[in-house]
Amino acid sequence: MPKDFFRLHGLGEPRSRRRFLAQVSFGLGGVMGLMLGVPLIGYLFGPLIKRSPQQWIDLGPVSDFALGQTKLVSFTDPSSVPWAGQTSQTSVWVRQTAPNAFDVFAVNCTHLGCPVNWLDGARLFECPCHGGIYYSDGTVAAGPPPRSLFKHETRIVDGRLQAFTIPLPTSQLSEYVGNA
């Protein structure tokens, strides 16, 4: 671009008609950008500002769970979209520790979220990704996890076990889930 481009076209001169028209054009471009940008940003970020509703979900009658057993229970995530198919499902590990006292663990490893497996013979949870291992009460036995498995809040209503859902990312969870 030639150095004297602005002088050539009169853009550098104060109060010239040409300079005014250039400023108006740039300004209108900005207005158009806002007209497109504001709805777009609202569309993308809006759902996030409105915190997705977490709620109690039913895990089945208390009698489904034997004392001392650890069992995988699946349920439909209430926040999933109608076309989510199989991914609308979520799982938790349920363990009855004493009569009518339950630990409901999120399946996500507290390291980076992979699904932990319960090995009934070993009485351990093992994670297939980065090697996290937990005891049956959810405390860390080995590997990189920084804390014990996340526990859902639980309650028993009319003889049925219920758990309160927890959202991703679990690394932000301390406000939802007590340090187990």
Partner: peptide, 30 residues
């Protein structure tokens, strides 16, 4: 899920970033 957990570690805006990436509070249709 692993990627969202990493994004979630960002200070202050971690949750926003993670939920923007996965478009919600779970990995699913969106």
């Amino acid at each position: 899920v692993v990627m969202a957990e990493q994004a979630g570690k960002t200070p202050v805006i971690g949750q926003l970033v993670a939920q923007l990436v996965v478009a919600g509070s779970t990995v699913g249709g969106a």
